[in-house]
């Protein structure tokens, strides 16, 4: 790789810039090709999987007599259950009695103006 320093000239700057652009392009092109390849492999394997599924009779995959609304309800219930959307409550309602200790600091007698009439 070209190493630039303070003594470089215009020619070096231009060549370095051009080389850099080529390196950026080539590294992303390599990445692009690699993923084109993995993409093709993935598409092929998923096609094979679908073909295998086609061989299995429809009855074995899913019962066809369940209406769509029921499937939606089951899906919603599963979603609520698995994702823990609902908060859990104890369903017990109690009234707690709180007894405060006597303290002159919160006593009303000392807080009110005692007017003797």
């Amino acid at each position: 790789m070209i190493i630039l320093n303070a003594t470089m000239e215009w020619g070096d700057i231009l060549i370095a810039s051009l080389t850099s652009v080529l390196i950026v392009f080539s590294s992303l092109a390599v990445l692009s090709l690699a993923f084109k390849l993995t993409g093709n492999l993935s598409v092929k394997s998923s096609k094979k999987r679908i073909e295998k599924r086609v061989d299995i009779p429809n009855d074995a995959i899913a019962p066809s007599d369940i209406p769509a609304s029921e499937i939606a309800a089951i899906a919603m219930a599963l979603h609520l259950f698995l994702d823990d959307v609902h908060d859990k409550e104890s369903n017990v309602i109690t009234i707690k009695r709180i007894e405060r200790r006597y303290s002159p600091w919160n006593s009303k007698i000392y807080g009110l103006t005692n007017l003797n009439r």
């Binding site: 231009l14 850099s20 652009v21 392009f25 992303l28 092109a29 990445l31 692009s32 090709l33 993409g39």
Partner: peptide
Amino acid sequence: SLISNPKLMLLGASAQVGIFITFI
């Protein structure tokens, strides 16, 4: 989106031309 259409990576590379022109 990039994995599904890898050729678009080249657009990401082309926009970097600005870096090197500004460098000059």
